[in-house]
Design a protein around this nucleic acid. Structure first.
Lengths: 210, 210
DNA sequence: ACCTGAACACCGTTCAAGT
DNA sequence: ACCTGAACACCGTTCAAGT
């Protein structure tokens, strides 16, 4: 697998990610990635066992783009900046981002982020036995939220608001009717992320107090 | 699109879902679904515009399998049962489950679940303007958590514990070292879901109190 | 109304070979 | 050490036709 002299691996991953950014994840075929580099598809199999391994590499590439917060700032500020850093990856690579929730991340880039979160949670005073679970919860929240954003799950979908309203103004959707005024334009994505992140941070604080 | 006399749509969706359950999402091709029903691939295009629309149907099918909690029980119990209901869908359809976070859900089945959550949040006393955001947060948490479970993101991945430990016992991963005792066997999946769901429920209570 | 057949432009991957 | 060519068994989808 040329795991040692693998000078061209980052180049290949960059081409795959660029292709995803420009034309969607479905456009990332072994053939298209190779063509973008002036190679034959088969050349890629010298660097990756198969397409799945290449996509895992893309995932690692995205994670390595997240900047770690500087040391001086407090744990809460640092955790929030990390969350925003991951969210920026979603903005840069919306098509590839959902890979992060769908695959186990065992790359050094993933370990680096987990390590940063562990240290911050410990610095916050979270008891060690709670730290791994809270890290998984934070990760799940951030990845789930940003995946929802980039995949349009938070939007109105393909139903426009009027059509959607027609669907529930038949009378048997009282829950929707009660909140109808706050439904049609889901605020802005940034405000929602901010509010949810605030909420999740209180859970960290709760773990500290306990 | 035969949207009116579409008696065979559920049959087709059932075949697609069964295929995903048995042989993975990648095995769900138009050709394979058709073959399972004794049809030509082209027959499916009478019921679905394209493969994407068929997969959206599978998504709706999964959501419609979630049982709504009975009316008598309290809001907290009801929300928790709903969360567990969604988690059971993940257990039944691990390969297809990740579709739920990756696609906007605009089906009647999705509306039915959102409506149930709206009513429960209102019954809990959450102010109406907070209800849609809390619904999205609950959904994101449950879908993100279960997606992580079924895709192996919470497990050790392809690195066995010993190898992983070697990776961080080089000395520059103090965060991992501090929690090493609680790392190797991530408890059981059910306990983790339980603990996180408890935490998320406190956020609903906070919204009520505010 | 519902389905089929043939065709087109693609896939991932194996194997053997080339320099 | 790195890459190519040809081949195999697949894809989704269009178009025209069949009953």
């Amino acid at each position: 697998m040329r795991k040692l002299k693998d000078s061209r691996r980052p180049e290949i991953l960059g081409a795959a990610l660029a292709l995803a950014d420009e034309r969607g994840l479905a456009a990332v075929s072994m053939r298209a990635v190779a063509q973008r580099l002036g190679l034959t598809p088969m050349a890629l199999y010298g660097y990756f066992r198969n397409k799945e391994e290449l996509l895992d590499g893309v995932l690692g590439q995205m994670l390595s783009e997240v900047e770690l917060p500087a040391d001086g700032i407090g744990w809460r500020e640092a955790l929030e900046r990390l969350a925003y850093g991951v969210r920026e990856i979603g903005a840069s690579h919306p098509a590839a981002f959902p890979l992060l929730l769908a695959r186990p991340a065992v790359s050094p880039a993933a370990l680096r982020l987990v390590e940063a979160v562990y240290r911050l949670l410990l610095a916050a005073g979270v008891p060690p036995q709670e730290v791994p679970r809270l890290e998984r919860m934070l990760g799940t929240f951030v990845l789930g939220h940003v995946t929802s954003e980039v995949s349009g799950r938070f939007g109105a979908g393909t139903l426009d608001p009027a059509e959607r309203r027609a669907q529930f103004e038949t009378g048997d959707l009282p829950g929707h009717e009660a909140v109808a005024g706050y439904l049609d334009h889901y605020p802005d994505a940034g405000a929602e992320f901010r509010a949810n992140l605030d909420d999740v941070m209180t859970l960290v604080e709760r773990a500290v107090a306990r």
